[in-house]
């Protein structure tokens, strides 16, 4: 066992190092762009800050949900509710969860990763992601801009598109 751990240490170090290559690359782009267009580069940083601020609440909610999952939910629970054989209940649950999830999508990826580890199928994960397109809270705003007829048809098609996309991922995903 100890031998295994000793062998894993450099691999872990390498993978941690590799994980920072992408952010370092993006930071490098900022550094290159700054002397060329300082105002825009700083503006970009400001926008990134705003995005982080907007994402902070969903990130906290997502963390809380992951904590509850890790604390109380076993793989058999998730497999039963969101696994391949979960049926209509699983489709409904993942759709409602997707519709209710707020904020930037990347705030919810860690939660989805935990769900997947615990046995959720690719179909249900895709269904969650796709149903984020349905925004009942923003419906009044859409009606103001495009009228109720367009908004209603658009929302119905959002649900249709979400289900079709999830079905395609479920069929072609191939992992579960």
């Amino acid at each position: 066992m100890s031998q295994g751990k000793a062998n894993d240490a450099p691999r872990l170090k390498r993978s941690r190092f590799r994980a920072w290559i992408f952010p370092a690359g993006v930071a490098g782009v900022y550094l290159i762009l700054y002397p060329i267009a300082p105002c825009r580069t700083l503006n970009g940083l400001g926008v990134a800050g705003q995005v982080l601020l907007q994402a902070s609440l969903p990130l906290i909610i997502s963390f809380g949900m992951m904590l509850l999952l890790n604390l109380f939910i076993t793989p058999s629970h998730v497999s039963k509710l969101l696994g391949g054989g979960a049926g209509v209940k699983g489709i409904f649950l993942s759709a409602v969860a997707g519709i209710l999830s707020m904020g930037p999508i990347f705030a919810w990826y860690p939660f989805l990763a935990t769900l997947r580890k615990k046995g959720a199928s690719d179909f249900h994960l895709a269904n969650f992601l796709s149903h984020r397109a349905v925004k009942p809270v923003l419906l009044p705003m859409m009606i103001v801009y495009f009228g109720w007829r367009f908004s209603l048809i658009f929302t119905i098609f959002c649900i249709f598109c979400a289900l079709v996309t999830a079905a395609i991922v479920g069929m072609l995903g191939g992992q579960r």
Binding site: P23, V26, V29, A37, R40, T41, N43, A48
Partner: peptide
Amino acid sequence: EAWTKTAKQYLSLVPVLTAVILLVGLFKAF
């Protein structure tokens, strides 16, 4: 244990999340 596990899962995502947030800023500005 659950807290440590969740924190570890989250921390492992920090690099790529940071990069994407920075990328969104860059994209919107340029």
